[in-house]
Every structure is written in C-alpha cells, then in structure tokens.
Design a protein around this nucleic acid. Structure first.
Lengths: 143, 143
DNA sequence: TTATCTGCAAACCCTTTGCATTTAA
DNA sequence: TTAAATGCAAAGGGTTTGCAGATAA
C-alpha cells in the first residue's frame, strides 16, 4: 500500500469514517498516477481492477482526498475538472515591505490555480512560479 | 454609442455578420458595466432596457465580444463564468518557457485582485508586484 | 432575396444528491 | 448493532444547440 494511501486511511479514521474497499482502491490508483487525471479516467482505471465500483464513489473519494490535503483539483479551461496529488512541502510566495524590509511568507492556492489557468490559455504547463508583492506593512503605514 | 461598441460593430461587419439591435444592446450595456459580470446578470441588465431579448443571444454576443478581443471570460472557482472588458494598456506579467526561453506577456486582473486580498489579510497595501510563471510552452511540450 | 439572427425549448456535460441496500466497526 | 458507504438513477446548473420564424443587408 502506498504511503499516502495509509495517510489517507488515517485521515478517514480520524474523521470517524470507514475505510472501505472502494476508498482504498481509488486512493491506491490515484497515488500511483502521475500528473493530472479526471474523475472519469480515474474511475475507468479503478474499474479495471475493481469492477462494479461507481463513478459516484470516485467523485466522493476524490473529495475526501482533497479535504485531506492529498489531492488538488484544477479546472483548466472550460473542461472537466482534473485532480493531482497534492505535495505539502510546497512553494510559498512573499510579501515584502518596501520601507522596513520585513518579509512575510504566504501561499495562496487560489492564486496558483489562476496562474495555471493563465498559463494554460497560452499553451503552457507551469513548473514553477515566483510571486512577490511589494508594499507597506501595517506598522510602516501607520507610523 | 460607446467607442467600443462601435469597434465591435466594425468587427461584426468585418466578419460578414450582421449588426443587430440585440448585439448592439448587449455590447452597449456590457461596455457601460464596471468589473465582472455574468452572462445571466448581463442578460438581466439588458432585459431591463430591451425586454424580450434572449439569454441565448447574450451568450452568443459575449462569445463574439470575446473573439473580438473586447471581452474576457474568467472562471473563478467552480462557479459560473464572468466577463469583463479587455483593456489592452495595463501592467502585464510573464510566462517563461524554461526550455526555449520564449516569453509571453499576460495580464490577469483577477490575480491582482486576489493579491490585494492576500496582502490585506497580512495588513499590507500593495504598491507593486512581480509575477513570473515558469514552464513549458506548447511546442516544447509536444516536441 | 437570402444568408444570418433570434428566442424558445431541449440537449449537454460534468458533478452532486436522494434513496434503498450493503457494509465496516 | 448501527452509523456510514455504496451504486443506481435522477436531478442540477451553467452553457450550447436545433430549429422555425424573423430580420438585416
């Protein structure tokens, strides 16, 4: 079993939910998938190994994985949503005070989603990004 | 008539299409709207002035406006699409291909709005920003 | 005149929900 | 034992499409 599937099981248990055959199957296949995958494609992959599983269950499990912070949903363009593994040791961006030099680290998944959508519009696949916001922090502003 | 509505009419004519009452009405209301507006809200606004217009026509006109480069559609989060005027003389950010070095300029008002929201969360007021997206462009990806 | 438009209703597509049944704990 | 999960079918919600009648050029 994938390390992340085990982590998912712990998350499930922690919420007082049940660890089912289907959830484990979906997680296992999801974590062995590289890049993005749609709910439907994941459903097809899992179906190959565990016939009879429902597309609905795949959707529900993907939602749980997302809540667990193990998956991330993207909506590129106008098409169907796709999911990818969420890596928690992630990039962060910076807020920089132009007066006192104070630096605050932050991350904003919603901004990153948009960055990817922009990139997609131009045919790009984002590998990395740099976002720096320059301005005045509260104390410099009120001082 | 709005300067941009006139520009839209020229675009329409250039494509051998017809300048109709409805298209002009939608464009006129759209260009007098600040910020983002959904197809449905635009439909409601136009309906007030031109009863009987169809939501379908609003969608079709918004598509034409977008093709003309006069409108821009955004899909924030998972919700319905919204449109805004496309302004060609603004700050832009960069998309950089890490393989061929190709650089594309883009601007994304929605990202800037979110940047300000994030900054505000930390007590900052944004004066400037730098956003660089690094990745692979279409040709480098498919090559 | 005639190709394009319009508005309505129906279709679409992806995703979620309702519900009766099954299952993990 | 029993609260939670499953799978099916049906509903949702925003957007698009088919079509017959209307209209701009």
């Amino acid at each position: 079993m994938h390390r992340k599937t085990a982590e998912f099981s712990r998350f499930i248990a922690g919420k007082g939910l049940k660890s089912t055959r289907q959830r484990t199957a979906v997680a296992e296949v999801f974590f062995s998938t590289r890049g993005h995958i749609s709910a439907e494609d994941l459903y097809l992959k899992v179906s190959g190994l565990h016939p009879g599983i429902g597309l609905t269950t795949v959707y529900r499990t993907l939602r749980l994985l997302t809540e667990a912070g193990l998956a991330k949903e993207h909506r590129f363009g106008e098409s169907q949503g796709v999911f990818e593994k969420e890596d928690n040791a992630r990039h962060h961006d910076h807020l920089i005070c132009t007066r006192c030099g104070r630096i605050i680290e932050f991350k904003e998944p919603s901004i990153e989603k948009m960055q990817e959508a922009v990139a997609e519009k131009y045919g790009f696949v984002v590998e990395d990004h740099k976002l720096e916001l320059y301005g005045l922090c509260r104390s410099c502003r009120t001082a």
